[in-house]
Design a protein around this nucleic acid. Structure first.
Length: 642
RNA sequence: GCCUGGGUGGCUCAAUGGUAGAGCAGCGGAUUUGUAAUCCGCAGGUUAAGGGUUCGAGUCCCUUCCCAGGCUCCA
């Protein structure tokens, strides 16, 4: 028999007979690998371990340590879920069930009865049984039509629909879980070699989900789950989830008296003083950056005639998200965006090429009617404010403008401890306005701006808006969840619609390019993310209450007040807890409210003119003179912090 | 918008179809305390809203509102 060479990631190579199975290769490398391997990559292609090698190839075995290994593992768990459901409820139809990037997996079922928590528990038990049976998972290759016949017999209409989308004559794969009553599923795979490879499973939630995500289609029932090789990892995952629940900004918003919701204005927050403080501080922070980066703030009307929105195109494309009012027989719209007003202002007079770029910043409140089912806390609201600005510039200024924006943005992100910034450059989609030459030039300039900053980014081909290419900025929070914050979008369309112009050096009328950009995005949403990122323990410069002075008894309130007066004179936000509570209770309360510093004052301090400093989180900073405390915290309290 | 599950004092939760309750927060009084919660008392409700069934509804039925988790990271 002819031999083939298998080259491994470490550079070594092994020789085998042609037709060797990957399981044999793994075993030859080592028994531990054979046990840990879940799937493999052969010349870069993801395959199952039952694959046989017909020629020399580069092979990488995937284990639980590999991201792709985890995906295969979870995908196989999803199959076990479907098998369990059909064992218990044979009338239920299967559809699809992938593994998710966030670690979970799901499977969508067509069932007349939704899954209750009790049924979920039964399904979970059944899954454990299937795992205990350690059923071999086999891959069967067959023609599309053979598969079609098989799933017609099994009575699985969704699988048939999927098969019908596959070109005739193609080979498809069916996975077979070998048991007393075998179970099959149409699937691209790959899968782990047997059900026994799965360790711990936990079903999380069930909910409705449309077939193919389209609300015109039938509503299916989705079950979400998670799986891990061992209980320790599962518990750690569940613990992180609990931690996320504790940090939920809606919960902390209540506990810290930041904001509130009322039925009179669904999905529209009311900010209490502490929350309003955070909000205005964010605005002031961005304003300070605008001062450094040459932006000019403008103020525009809240309600404008629909003719404006006809010009901008919003009436055609965005009307279902807008609020309207009719007065004196005239229709007006509440602004959902600032850009049309800025275009109007730019167009109010002729501009010379010398005065570009024009940078209009606007903290106006925006109103968008979001569908009732998609609103959530501060993260998706109907009334909000963006750190929005529009830059009108010449094409040759794009690179410098975008570059400066990236600098400004990264400074702000770093300030909040968002160091892991993921950047996407989205390019021309199929449907687009503007010429190919304009697009190519704009994309190159965005690319250049990013490269000049030395930041890493990925290109999302074809993901740009129809009116121009864009750069999106994502950050990871303290719980490793990714959020999109900033955006920088070029727009070829609005300048055209508003017939904007500037006069170039040759006295010719030219069309400016417009850039929409925001660092934090919606202030409401950013605040929600920041609350969860910090667990409500805001940095000193931002905290609504920076210092709480705690007299140990009534006799010392006067001294406590004098300390507070000194600190306030230095610009700090200070309160005195003069209540009749015991000092321990005052400490507990201040901790619960996440006040950065507690200054305990008793007889010893009053006599020496000192304070006993306790930092948030049970950190004893010792006894210092008031002036010493002020000097110590001054850098962290400084505003603006950049 | 659609699916599922919810909605009981400010908050967290009790209450077989049979008198709406507790803890915390609030207010009043006592206590004046040395680093995570002192004691006593008081007040607080048209059980989201409206309708229906019933001798009787927080509880069962209908409608509306609001909230939560979801709604193609593809066989």
């Amino acid at each position: 028999m002819a031999s083939i060479t298998v080259s491994l990631p470490d550079g070594s190579a092994l020789s085998f007979d042609r037709g060797v199975a990957l399981t044999t290769v793994a075993a030859a490398i080592g028994p531990r690998l054979a046990q840990a391997a879940l799937a493999a990559k052969v010349d870069g292609q993801l395959v199952g371990l039952d694959t046989v090698l017909e020629r020399s190839a580069a092979v990488t075995f995937l284990t639980w340590r590999d991201a792709e290994g985890k995906l295969v593992y979870r995908h196989s768990t999803a199959h076990i879920l479907a098998q369990a459901v059909q064992r218990l409820l044979p009338e239920v139809k299967v559809t699809i069930g992938p593994a998710l990037e966030d670690g979970r997996f799901y499977y969508d079922f067509d069932t007349p009865q939704p899954f209750t928590p009790e049924v979920l528990a039964q399904i979970e038990d059944e899954m454990r049984r299937i795992i205990a049976e350690d059923q071999p998972i086999e891959r069967l290759k067959c023609s599309r039509d053979e598969a079609r016949a098989m799933f017609t017999e099994l009575g699985e209409p969704y699988k048939i629909e999927l098969l019908d989308a596959i070109p005739e004559g193609e080979t498809v794969s069916v996975y077979l879980n070998q048991a007393a009553t075998p179970w099959r599923d149409l699937c691209r795979g790959p899968h782990v070699p047997s059900t026994g490879r799965i360790g711990q499973v936990k079903l999380l939630t069930s909910s409705g989900a449309y077939w193919r995500g389209d609300s015109n289609n039938k509503m299916l029932q989705r079950i979400y789950g998670i799986s891990f090789p061992d209980a320790k990892e599962l518990n750690e995952w569940l613990r992180l989830r609990e931690e996320a629940e504790k940090r939920d900004h809606r919960k902390l918003g209540r506990e810290l008296d930041l904001f509130w919701f009322h039925d009179v204005a669904p999905a529209s927050p009311f900010f209490f003083p502490a929350g309003a403080h955070l909000y205005t501080k964010l605005v002031d922070l961005i304003r300070a950056q605008y001062g450094k980066y040459g932006y000019d703030e403008v103020i525009t009307p809240q309600v404008m005639d629909v003719s404006l929105w006809q010009t901008s195109g919003h009436m055609d494309n965005y009307a279902e998200n807008m609020y309207f009012v009719e007065l004196d027989g005239q229709q007006y719209a509440v602004k959902p965006m600032n850009c049309p007003a800025h275009c109007l202002m730019y167009g109010s007079r002729l501009h010379s090429y010398r005065e570009l770029p024009v940078r209009y910043a606007d903290f106006g409140r925006l109103h968008r009617y979001e569908a009732s089912g998609v609103t959530a806390g501060l993260t998706r609201v109907r009334s909000f404010c963006q750190d929005d600005a529009h830059i009108f510039c010449r094409a040759d200024q794009i690179e410098a403008e975008v570059g400066a924006f990236i600098d400004m943005l990264l400074e702000v992100y770093q300030l909040f401890g968002f160091s892991d910034v993921h950047i996407d450059l989205s390019t021309r989609p199929a449907k687009a306005v503007g010429t190919a030459a304009e697009w190519t030039e704009a994309e190159q300039r965005l690319d250049q701006a990013l490269r000049a900053r030395g930041v890493e980014f990925t290109v999302a081909a074809g993901e740009g808006a129809f009116y121009g290419p864009k750069i999106d900025f994502m950050v990871s929070d303290a719980l490793h969840r990714r959020h999109q914050l900033g955006t920088c979008q070029l727009d070829f369309q609005l300048p055209q619609r508003f017939d904007l112009a500037y006069i170039d050096a040759a006295d010719q009328r030219q069309r400016p390019v417009m850039v929409h950009r925001a660092l934090l995005g919606s202030l409401e949403r950013f605040l929600g993310i920041l609350i969860e990122h910090t667990a409500g323990a805001f940095p000193l410069w931002l905290a609504p209450e920076q210092v709480r002075v705690i007299p140990v008894g009534e006799r010392f309130t006067e001294y406590a007040q004098s300390v507070a007066t000194q600190l306030r004179a230095a610009g700090l936000r200070v309160t005195v807890d003069a209540s009749a509570e015991r000092m321990q209770a005052k400490i507990a309360l201040a901790e619960a409210k996440k006040v950065p510093f507690m200054l305990v004052c008793g007889g010893r301090e009053a006599e020496a003119g000192t304070v006993a400093v306790r930092a948030r989180g049970m950190i004893d900073r010792g006894v210092v003179p008031v002036a010493g405390f002020l000097a110590e915290i001054a850098p962290a309290a400084q505003f603006p912090p950049l």
